[in-house]
Design a protein around this nucleic acid. Structure first.
Length: 108
DNA sequence: ATTCTTACA
DNA sequence: TGTAAGAA
């Protein structure tokens, strides 16, 4: 890939032509200062699952890097991986309910 | 050179 | 969690 993080494994004529920055596991590891093995485990534990591309290599988007920052903060505070999974699950649920309230606010 | 998976201490 | 072997 291009070391500048501009590699996008999804070709497509209709693609919105934006060069979305993607990062390899190595780049993310040095950026967040965590071992690559930990990133792979977060993937296996279904906590942060990056896209894959080329030869099945992980490609992290900025959004996933942000999610990684949240997760690392939690684990640093002592939350276990199963715990983190539940926190993220609850966070998704809260977002869902917030959107629902927003909708109801619109109709009435 | 890097990353991937699987396995082991 | 960290590290190693072997394939990609």
């Amino acid at each position: 890939m291009r070391r500048d993080g501009q590699d996008d494994g999804a070709p497509g004529p209709a693609a919105t032509g934006r060069n979305v920055p993607f990062y390899t596991i190595g780049q993310v590891a040095s950026l967040l200062e965590v071992p690559t093995a930990q990133l792979r485990r977060l993937d296996e534990q279904e906590i942060v699952q990056p896209e894959r591309s080329d030869g099945n290599q992980r490609r992290y988007s900025q959004e996933e890097i942000d999610r990684l920052r949240e997760v690392l903060q939690l684990t640093d505070e002592g939350v276990t991986l199963p715990g983190v999974r539940k926190v993220l699950e609850l966070r998704r649920r809260v977002d869902e309910l917030e959107h629902e309230l927003e909708r109801e606010r619109g109709e009435a």
